[in-house]
């Protein structure tokens, strides 16, 4: 086997099919999207090359920056909520009774499809028959708000199911990472007189730091390109109050038949994701990774 693998041609042959597919399905379309952004195109008919007009329009478009602001807000909330997930995972990975059951309970939202979650929460938020408002009314609030129809509330009302949806995923990642830490380290620390708090924050957290970094990137980038629940639950409304970058791109390209502009928005979205990922990597960079084994 080693002999085969030392042959460069063989390596190339093994790598090639996947590489070709990735190029054809992901990288070529990315480049094409960037190119479409340079044209005026309605999806059928001829493309008209207009240079950087569309990109200039994106940068001056208030509606785009408003939606970008919403996406960033979601990214911040997602990143902050990671801390909560980490705490839950720390507790679960300790010797808690029923930890296994809890882990499964947290994971269930992850198994539902986004559209099912959206339908579920639409029912929860329904202004007159919804669970939430019925509950509030039973508590004595006479006129609870219509959560998805108020421009000031809709974004918050959407963030809750979005965070809820992914909670289980991150808890599971943290849980797995924490379980990977050799028990001998914890025992050694105990013998040296460390308390539970110190074990968690001085030993366990530094050891899973790489995982935490990855989840921050995942959460932030996932939030920036977030689309599904918002599309189903509010469609960016009312009046653009819950529009995010991806839904804005969709509306421009597929509703307004402005594929040129939509592509430009998509490409800017990609650039924003890349830049922010790079910034996060820079901020969380550490000279040497800690290893105790």
């Amino acid at each position: 086997m080693d002999k085969v693998m030392s042959n460069k041609y063989v390596i190339a042959l093994y790598v090639l099919p996947a590489l070709l597919l990735i190029l054809a399905i992901i990288y070529v379309p990315i480049v094409l999207t960037g190119y479409y952004g340079l044209t005026e195109w309605n999806g059928i008919g001829a493309m008209k090359f207009t240079g950087f007009d569309n990109y200039a329009r994106v940068l001056q478009d208030n509606a785009f920056w408003q939606s970008a602001g919403h996406s960033l807000l979601l990214a911040v909330f997602s990143a902050v909520s990671l801390f909560g997930y980490l705490l839950v995972a720390l507790v679960l990975s300790g010797k808690v009774k029923g930890a296994n059951t809890f882990r499964k309970i947290y994971l269930i939202p992850m198994l539902l499809s986004s559209v099912a979650i959206a339908q579920l929460w639409l029912k929860v938020y329904h202004p007159t028959n919804g669970v939430l408002n019925s509950f509030l009314e039973s508590l004595g609030f006479s006129n609870p708000p219509a959560w998805l129809a108020e421009t000031s509330l809709v974004l918050g009302a959407l963030f809750i199911p979005i965070l809820w949806q992914y909670a289980g995923f991150y808890i599971l990642i943290y849980y797995a990472a924490l379980k990977n830490i050799p028990a001998s380290l914890e025992e050694a620390a105990k013998i040296d007189g460390a308390n539970a708090w110190q074990i968690a924050f001085r030993i366990k957290l530094p050891l899973i730091m790489e995982v935490i970094k990855v989840t921050i990137v995942l959460a932030v980038v996932g939030s920036l390109k977030y689309f599904d629940l918002i599309y189903v639950m509010t469609d960016g409304g009312p009046n653009g109050a819950s529009e995010v970058m991806a839904s804005y791109m969709y509306h421009q390209a597929f509703r307004g038949f402005d594929f040129g502009f939509g592509s430009a928005v998509g490409f800017v979205l990609l650039l924003i994701c890349l830049i922010i990922t790079w910034i996060i990597r820079k901020l969380t960079e550490s000279k040497d990774t800690i290893q105790y084994s």
Binding site: H126, P127, T128, A146, L148, V154, P238
Partner: peptide
């Protein structure tokens, strides 16, 4: 109009 109409789809509005 029924409450929260701006957040309801046509089908939800119709069900009222």
């Amino acid at each position: 109009f029924n409450k929260g109409f701006n957040g309801l789809s046509n089908d939800e509005g119709k069900s009222e």
